[in-house]
């Protein structure tokens, strides 16, 4: 074997080892949670409200609460994020103002989630009088998700070849027709990836919902958007640290349900992505 080939082998091995280094801990964490939690997952656990000071019963209200929060977040953040990205990529002139917006978006994604929580509390709960509610929580999580959705959508739109736009415009299509038929369809897979990524994060966040929506103990479903809900991450925090004498297996089971929920969301996005990729004929 000559030198170049040997160096290539070494480089491949190093890269492979690093990949393994990243994947193995994740698999171990998931395995650990499954081993400790799977035993406690029963039909009752998934469909009943907690009883006996959360020591018995299930986590049904928290599952529903988290799903509602994710849906609310998406309803708010997805249209706003995609439309902002369309504006930034297709319409905005490249001036100081636009650059400031872009810089702000990048910086916003680096803000700790507890800061969003505080902002949501003062803006939505107090100032707009939404109270501690599903609405306030969804808006807070939505604002937290926006930077990632905007950035991902922006990159997805920018990656659509300029020639598609040129073809469309040269045939006399309007700017909006061009965006609608020749740009957006090819950006959707990228937009979906970013959206699901940020929604997964929103589903698992505790800090932003702490003051804006999450109920410590509310063994019923919400009546309206102005009602509080239980949510899985906060419930996990509560049973793991705030209430004594709760079996650890219940915490692990709750964590497992949260992970499964996020995994399910990713699955849906993968299916949607495949569907839209098929539309692009190569």
């Amino acid at each position: 074997m000559n030198g170049a080939k040997l160096r290539q082998q070494i480089a491949f091995s190093v890269l492979g080892a690093i990949t393994l280094l990243i994947v193995v801990p994740i698999i171990l964490v998931i395995l650990y949670i499954i081993i400790n939690g799977a035993g406690s997952i029963t039909w009752q656990f998934l469909t009943q409200a907690p009883r006996n000071g959360m020591k018995a019963g299930g986590i049904f209200p928290a599952i529903v609460g988290t799903i509602l929060l994710v849906v609310g977040t998406m309803l708010f953040a997805l249209p706003l994020g995609v439309l902002s990205a369309i504006y930034l990529v297709e319409y905005a002139r490249d001036d100081l103002f636009t650059r400031m917006i872009k810089l702000s978006v990048v910086n916003l994604s680096g803000i700790p989630s507890i800061v969003y929580g505080l902002f949501g509390f003062t803006a939505f709960v107090l100032l707009l009088h939404f109270g501690t509610s599903l609405l306030a929580g969804s808006l807070t999580l939505g604002i937290m998700s926006l930077p990632v959705i905007i950035t991902a959508s922006k990159e997805a739109l920018e990656s659509v070849p300029l020639t598609y736009r040129e073809i469309s415009l040269s045939l006399g299509a309007t700017k909006w027709q061009t965006i609608r038929y020749c740009v957006l369809p090819y950006a959707i897979p990228g937009i979906l990836t970013g959206t699901v990524l940020s929604l997964s994060r929103a589903a698992g966040e505790t800090a932003p919902i702490l003051f804006t929506v999450a109920a410590f103990y509310l063994p019923r479903l919400p009546h309206s958007a102005f009602d509080q809900v239980m949510a899985l991450p906060y419930h996990l925090y509560v049973i793991a640290t705030q209430v004594p004498n709760i079996p650890l297996s219940i915490s692990f089971a709750t964590a497992l349900v949260l992970i499964a929920l996020v995994f399910l969301m990713n699955l849906v996005s993968i299916i949607l992505r495949a569907h839209y990729r098929k539309k692009r004929l190569w």
Binding site: E166, S170, G172
Partner: peptide, 27 residues
């Protein structure tokens, strides 16, 4: 619409032959 252009490199949209030609009339 009145003054069409053919570019240097053949540039087709990533859709079917039919949809490429139908795109203009559609818009």
């Amino acid at each position: 619409k009145k003054i069409g252009i053919i570019f240097a490199l053949p540039q087709v949209l990533p859709v079917s032959i039919l949809d490429n030609v139908a795109y203009g009339p559609k818009v």
